[in-house]
């Protein structure tokens, strides 16, 4: 089994593991950010370039460093490889550049964006971005498009990570959702304005790292940080039925998949669970979902289970 050292931490991983996944096995803040890679998809990654790392030593056999920064999500580790992520000034500089590139055509309309608070791009630019922009020109804009009755696509916010394209490729047999045009005119689309006829099409909302694909049953209903995410399950013959219901009081505002710390869902859930099961009686609530301490969603969110014995004061 190959041994790899990332930012000074050594770990032994299975043959064929990518640098990013090796870093995730170590954990902590040496994990490169990933905007397009999604481990639950068969094909993804390599496109956003935020996970670039520097390979200072190729392997035990061939210790030469790699000439360019490599995408850690798609470069397999070799035995004896040494990788610099946070410790490499070159990587930090390139990543800052990538974040700047991603933001020049992003509208930065976070105050009116449903994704705000759980947006990968927000987190990324908070960590690696600059405080101001050097881009003076007009940003590209698009009209909003409905993909079916429940999903809205707002291309202006899209960072073209191809995650939704890969998701739809995976769940459908034909090519129904893809990229039109090229360069910075590229546009995600179901040619032309079609809906995606599939029970799992709602998952494109969960995989979207930004607010380009949003749930029309939830749009503008509430900010995510006013809601309480609860682990819940229901009996469903299409999917596992394991989801997170976002509640305000006794009302379910929206249903999503269970996302881990890297924003990846555990299981894809079906459209019935996601869009049509807003009735609390359908769900069995397991308890509050764990939210990272630094996250804004954690405000007003108490991770206490009913069985926790709360002593009443006074």
């Amino acid at each position: 089994m190959p041994k790899v050292t990332i930012d000074g931490h050594t770990i032994e991983v299975a043959e064929g593991t990518t640098i990013l996944n090796a870093a995730r096995q170590i954990g902590g803040d040496l994990v490169p950010p990933a905007m397009c890679y999604y481990s639950k998809l068969d094909v993804s990654g390599g496109k956003c370039r935020t996970c670039l790392v520097e390979v200072t030593k190729g392997s035990e056999k061939d210790p030469r460093p790699m000439p360019k920064l490599v995408a850690s999500c798609s470069t397999p580790v070799m035995d004896g490889m040494e990788v610099g992520n946070k410790s490499s000034a070159k990587v930090m500089d390139a990543r800052k550049g990538v974040v700047e590139f991603l933001l020049i055509n992003h509208p930065l309309d976070c105050p009116i964006c449903d994704q705000a608070g759980e947006c990968d791009l927000q987190n990324l630019s908070y960590e690696h971005g600059a405080s101001g922009s050097r881009y003076e020109e007009d940003k590209r804009t698009f009209e909003k498009i409905d993909i079916g009755p429940n999903i809205q696509l707002h291309m202006t916010r899209c960072i073209l990570c191809y995650r939704c394209v890969n998701t739809v490729d995976q769940i459908t047999d034909s090519r129904v959702h893809g990229v039109l045009n090229r360069g910075d005119h590229s546009e995600i689309g179901t040619y032309i304005h079609n809906s995606i006829e599939n029970d799992f099409s709602g998952n494109v909302i969960d995989v979207c790292p930004v607010g380009a694909l949003t749930d029309k049953t939830f749009r503008f209903k509430s900010r995510v940080w006013f809601l309480n995410p609860m682990n819940a399950h229901c009996k469903c013959d299409k999917c596992s039925g394991e989801a997170v219901v976002w509640m305000f009081g006794d009302e379910i505002y929206r249903v999503t998949g269970r996302k881990d710390q890297y924003g990846e869902v555990k299981d894809f859930i079906c459209n019935t669970c996601r869009f049509d099961s807003k009735d609390l009686a359908k769900w069995t609530i397991e308890g509050p979902r764990h939210i990272e301490r630094g996250s804004i969603i954690g405000q007003g969110h108490y991770e206490l289970k009913p069985e926790d014995n709360i002593k009443e004061i006074g």
């Binding site: 496109k47 550049g97 991603l102 073209l160 045009n181 090229r182 910075d184």
Partner: peptide, 11 residues
Amino acid sequence: ESCGQCSPCRE
């Protein structure tokens, strides 16, 4: 002519 796949070149 940029294909628009990866961000540095596209933007």
